[in-house]
């Protein structure tokens, strides 16, 4: 990890104002922000660890735990909610045995719920990585995830 961190730090001065870009680059490099990385970033930009931890936990874009190979984002916006997103959510959690924000044991999937992804016409809708799956019901969702797990090169439908 030390090498990876140093390669990120190399393009910065170690100023307090660089905290967020440094965190972004470190996450890009490591996939998430492990405790040790937060400590090192704090030392590098000369801020208290508490401050860096605070920033890292404030923004939803920063992750303190390893993330799965694929990121499932289920829309829980108004339109999706009305059309049964909560039942879809239950099924996803059931199939993957994870809670919101968690990652499957095999590190294949991370499940997140988001507010609106701007595809209300397809409600209920989810994305897996950069592919969108719409007009979901629990069964269809389960099938999609299973299929995705077997062959992640499968194209999405939109």
């Amino acid at each position: 990890m030390e090498e990876q961190l140093n390669s990120v730090f190399a393009s910065y001065q170690g100023e307090k104002s660089e905290l967020i870009p440094v965190l972004q680059d470190v996450q890009e490099e490591l996939g998430y922000l492990p405790e040790e990385a937060i400590r090192e970033v704090a030392r590098f930009v000369r801020l208290p660890e508490a401050k860096v931890f605070g920033v890292a936990t404030f923004y939803a874009r920063f992750h303190l735990h390893p993330r799965g190979e694929h990121i499932i984002r289920l829309c829980c916006g108004t339109a999706c909610h009305v059309r049964g997103a909560s039942k879809v959510a239950d099924r996803v959690k059931d199939v993957l045995s994870v809670g919101v924000g968690e990652t499957t044991e095999d590190m294949k999937f991370t499940y997140e719920e988001v507010a609106c992804i701007g595809a209300c016409g397809l409600a209920p809708v989810m994305t897996i990585d950069d592919k969108t799956f719409g007009k979901l019901d629990p069964d269809k969702t389960e099938k999609t995830i299973k299929k995705f797990g077997e062959d992640s090169s499968e194209g999405g439908e939109a």
Binding site: R39, E49, A50, K51, F53, G54, T57, F58
Partner: peptide, 17 residues
């Protein structure tokens, strides 16, 4: 520098890293 705000929204808190 022992404490700062952590997380946000309902679960926001003040505490150590």
């Amino acid at each position: 520098g022992a404490i700062d705000f952590t997380k946000r929204g309902f679960v926001a808190n003040v505490g150590p890293a």
